[in-house]
Amino acid sequence: MSKPILHMAGITKVFNTEEMETHALRGVDLSIYLGEFVSICGPSGCGKSTLLSILGLLDLPTAGSYQIEGTEVAQLSLSEAATIRNEKVGFIFQSFNLIDELSVYDNIALPLRYRRQPIPHAESDKKLKECLEKVGMSHRASHKPNQLSGGQQQRIAIVRALVGTPSLLLVDEPTGNLDSRNGDAVMEMLRQLNSDGTTLCMVTHDPRYADMASRLLHISTPQLVKEPHETAL
């Protein structure tokens, strides 16, 4: 394997609420390599989404070291972190997180709007239309997300994660809201992306899809047991 693009050592996340401290993650050590397809599974509440948001620079760990392409994340400024999120990371959320007030087209255009180098309108327009075409949603471009079905929203969320051509794609339960036919289609898309070179890190409950990964991580209890093992490929 090549060098790791992400490296975590002793990552701990504690949520402090008024009533109690929640230890969502305890001492996670994890390296993800370029081009890998990692899947993370474990019971509800064990900290999968938390781990993913730390990986995607949406949250900071309470303790431990996390390096992305060799840079210590804790040292990044807000705006450096924003730039990395925008240019290197694509995030597909468990709950889609589309903006209801914007049309499908405007939703998927968001990552391009935040580029440091502005992309000419014609170029971005072409790209957005192609992406919508790929997931068969061109005819829905001007609809609002709440006018779409769950599966359609999921596809739009995927397109939004992909338009910026990220090198790392973080996916939280991509098939949780879909029937098996739609789920299969989504998984097929992700697999295709991975074989095209995108590093993929996916949380899933579904063992069928987990097995498609090149590496399976299992988080068992709120106390983390880290036992990464290679799946037989």
Partner: peptide, 16 residues
């Protein structure tokens, strides 16, 4: 705030 959070997650800077 949810909309803003989504935008920030997608890479919006403070200035955006």
């Amino acid at each position: 705030q949810r909309n803003m959070a989504i935008q920030v997650a997608l890479g919006a800077h403070k200035k955006h």
